[in-house]
Design a protein around this nucleic acid. Sequence first.
DNA 1: GCGACAG
DNA 2: ATCTTGTCGC
Length: 181
Amino acid sequence: MVAVSAPYVAGFLAFREVPFLVESVQRLEQEKPELRPQVLLVDGNGLLHQRGFGVACHLGVLTDLPCVGVAKNLLHVDGLVKDELHKEQIRSLQKKGDTFPLTGTSGAVLGMALRSCNNSYKPLYISVGHRICLETAVRLVKSCCKYRIPEPIRQADIRSRAYIQKQMCSPPAVAPSGLKR
DNA sequence: GCGACAG
DNA sequence: ATCTTGTCGC
């Protein structure tokens, strides 16, 4: 459990959450070095960002581990917006694995919209975080999706919420201090 | 000036 | 992200 103080501001997610993510990775390295991850799936963006450096890039640099940015919503940046054209492109995604590039006004491909499963029309927005190419990132995310959200992120979400529940209900302990995962 | 814009 | 009721489908 950690106590976050920084507010959420679009474009500055890393400044709010990366300290705890780094802490978590370091703790794993210290307690279970044999489980050192080969890659991290990050709930947020990488290069697809206002300044081309989202939380997936921050975490990658700070841990020196390959990172993939996995966003559930499109961050409006460099001309990218969910307008009618974008919605049409989403409709063109027919099956799991189908994608379309997210090309900014600058002409650079900042990421890829990916239909991660056959049961959801809403795509995932994948972008490079650190030490991995976009193609590999997309292939990796697709490979671990049973549902729309890749299983590693989905499980982290489910288990962290369950942990919070447990902390608040059952064992009447002492005086708490903070909240959040 | 207001709204939208990862979580 | 969180809140919140019912509903649809496997």
